[in-house]
Simulated scan of single mutants.
Amino acid sequence: MEQGENSATAAIFQVLADDHSRRILLAADREPKSAKELSEICGVSLATIYRRVSTLETHGLVEDLSSVDSDGSHRRKYETTLEELHAEVSNGELELSIETRDELADNFSSLWTNLREDL
């Protein structure tokens, strides 16, 4: 994902400037976490977690991993998808590029497919 200096870029910077959002990204990076786990780790209310997770999801920085237990109860866990973020100032413009885990997986799959075709 590449974005020039526009409202989407400004929104990403604004999201990352928020302490709670950054803590959620870091907490959900190693393994998916429930909202309750994120609330405990980040030391904020569940309402704050849900608001920030919603914003992070909107910008593609967090993914909702929903599952159904054997008893029929629904479980939601959240996982950080942000892998790399690069900001570049060039020719008077600010450019932001974001790599998510999904994009990296797609790149790896393409590379593997190309290697197999070459064999």
Rank of each mutant, 00 (worst) to 15 (best):
L85F: 05
T80Q: 01
F13T: 02
E117N: 13
D71C: 07
E40S: 10
E99K: 07
E103F: 00
E40P: 05
L96Y: 11
A28G: 02
E83V: 02
E84F: 06
C42N: 01
F108P: 02
I98C: 03
S67N: 11
D29M: 09
R116A: 10
T80G: 03
I24V: 04
R22A: 10
E40H: 10
L46H: 08
L61D: 00
A17E: 13
V89N: 14
T58Y: 06
D69Q: 14
D71G: 08
E84V: 08
N114G: 15
A105I: 13
G4S: 12
T55W: 04
R75S: 07
C42Y: 01
R101E: 06
R101W: 05
E88H: 09
E57Y: 02
S39T: 01
N91K: 09
Q3G: 11
L38C: 03
A35N: 08
E84I: 01
R76A: 09
V15N: 02
R75Q: 13
R75E: 09
S70F: 07
D69S: 12
S90Q: 09
V44H: 06
S67V: 06
T58S: 10
E103C: 01
H74C: 09
K36P: 02
A87H: 10
E40Q: 14
I24F: 02
E2V: 13
D118E: 10
E5D: 15
R51G: 04
L85C: 05
D102A: 12
S54D: 13
S21D: 09
G72V: 00
D64C: 11
H74P: 02
G60Q: 05
D102I: 04
V62D: 04
L115A: 12
H59C: 10
D69H: 07
H86L: 11
S109Y: 13
E84A: 10
L119V: 11
R22C: 11
Y78N: 04
R75K: 13
N6K: 05
T55G: 05
I41D: 03
R23C: 05
E83A: 07
S21C: 15
N91Q: 12
A35G: 15
T100P: 01
L104M: 10
R30Y: 04
T48M: 05
T58A: 12
P32A: 12
L46S: 09
Q3E: 14
E57P: 01
T81Q: 15
R75V: 09
R23I: 01
L26M: 10
L94T: 06
W112M: 14
V15G: 01
I12Q: 00
R75Y: 04
V89K: 15
I98N: 00
L65F: 07
D19M: 08
V44Q: 04
M1P: 06
R51P: 03
I49K: 00
L38A: 00
L46Q: 12
L96Q: 04
Y78G: 00
E84L: 07
L82Q: 01
N107F: 06
N114E: 15
